[in-house]
Design a protein around this nucleic acid. Structure first.
Lengths: 243, 243
DNA sequence: GTCTTTTCTTGATTCAGATCAAGGAATGCA
DNA sequence: TGCATTCCTTGATCTGAATCAAGAAAAGAC
């Protein structure tokens, strides 16, 4: 499904119903959320929130990909998170964000006004618990990324990135095969991995030359040898164990 | 106060009473925690928890410093967090940790058995809310660290590290001056910053040579020129604004 | 369909920080 | 008080990835 095809759906039929902030909600709770929500679309490249901007809405990402990034005064930037469908933007008690939130692809948000939502959180433990889980998952992901940024080689970083996409593709079940679409440009991948775009390009092509992956077009990638890919990530020696 | 001097105290007199997981608790809630808690001491270098080990206790760090670290199969390690007094170990719904938790200095934990504590969390919104805040603070810190690991130079990393210690020293109020005690060896600092110990040593001595800091003994450091230090961190151009 | 822009690739060169190597200075222990 | 260990410094060299520099190949615009 292309994002532009997306139209508002009832919560029961929502693709992220069972993973988003509403995952634990029962029918009554869902009805309240249903009455509060509005959908909003963003084009690829559009900035959703600027760092320090006051947060009028919180939102779930319905589909598409967004990135969180920090920028230094001299222009160096580092992505500090990647938001995938079901991820949440906005935190209880926080009135602004610490980073820019940018639409990496075309995307759709399911938005709630912040103040009424926060009131709802206090009254609805199912939502508060789910928010906590989502925050802890992000914390785990951030820590894995710290290991990658601090200690992995360029090759390991690229392999880890591709493996992460492959994992998610397998998990979402939709994907039958190991053909993936890169949701970002080389430049954005470089910002995510703490590399330069040239190094990203070279490492992609090195893995291709070795027959680990194949590339066709700019954004199509196929994992040819998952075992070799896992080995190249530098992670656990059970690299061969397909999850 | 040296850690070894620490003796059990009543919660009302606890040094972390207003910042730890119990920060929002009222008298009755505090009484329950009081009845559940036990103190435990660890020596510097002792491992508190191994990665993957089941979590029988959760705990607040009363004083001392602990580190969270991840290790790759070939021995490369990266610290993914530093625990300071009032920080919390253990998360609702998590039965094990994803990293090793090691005592960096001698330290004291205020521990609670995990299961009864989790029951208490569900019944006590004051605790649940505070846990959420602590998790979000950690997430912010992790993201700042990602920028540091991915994009900062060795010099900027060292300056940021020293500045962080200085901030905390000023915040805790106790410290009158900008004399700090490094809580870690060069090797541990290197693991924290994604560097090698040689580079850490060189950068410390470079900043010393320039008159930004002064070093005496292994662990004593004094910030001589805070403005220059802030500039060297590479962060916001308002580096001079002493917060 | 042609022109323009953006994105990607590839090569040459440089450089920051890693690695290798050797001492020196604290610290702790007997 | 001496010995051993751990921790730190400093120098020499190496190297992985950054930077500099062209072009080529898509994608989009008109």
């Amino acid at each position: 499904m292309k994002n532009s095809d997306f139209v508002a759906v009832r919560c029961e039929e929502c693709p992220i119903r069972h993973r988003a902030v509403c995952a634990r909600c029962d029918g009554d709770e869902l009805a309240i959320l249903e009455s509060m929500k509005t959908y909003k679309q963003y084009a690829a490249g559009e900035t959703i929130l600027w760092r320090g901007e006051p947060l009028d809405y919180v939102a779930s990402l319905v589909h598409g990909v967004a990135s969180l990034s920090k920028t230094m005064e001299d222009g160096r930037t580092q992505m500090v998170g990647l938001l995938l469908p079901s991820d949440f933007i906005g935190r209880p008690g926080r009135t602004e964000v610490e980073f820019d939130v940018v639409a990496t692809t075309e995307l759709t948000l399911c938005r709630f006004e912040r103040k009424p939502f926060e009131k709802l959180v206090v009254e609805t433990p199912h939502i508060a618990q789910r928010l906590m889980e989502l925050a802890l998952d992000e914390l785990d992901a951030a820590r894995d990324w710290m290991l990658l940024l601090g200690r992995k080689t360029a090759r390991e970083k690229i392999a880890t990135f591709i493996d992460m996409l492959a994992q998610r593709s397998l998990a979402s079940g939709s994907a039958n095969d190991l053909k993936l679409e890169l949701p970002m440009t080389r430049d954005q991948i470089a910002n995510y991995l703490g590399l330069t775009l040239e190094t990203v390009s070279r490492q992609f092509n090195a893995l291709k030359k070795e027959g680990v992956i194949s590339l066709s077009g700019r954004k199509e990638i196929e994992v040819v040898d998952l075992l070799a890919l896992r080995t190249a990530t530098g992670d656990d020696s059970d690299g061969g164990m397909l999850s």
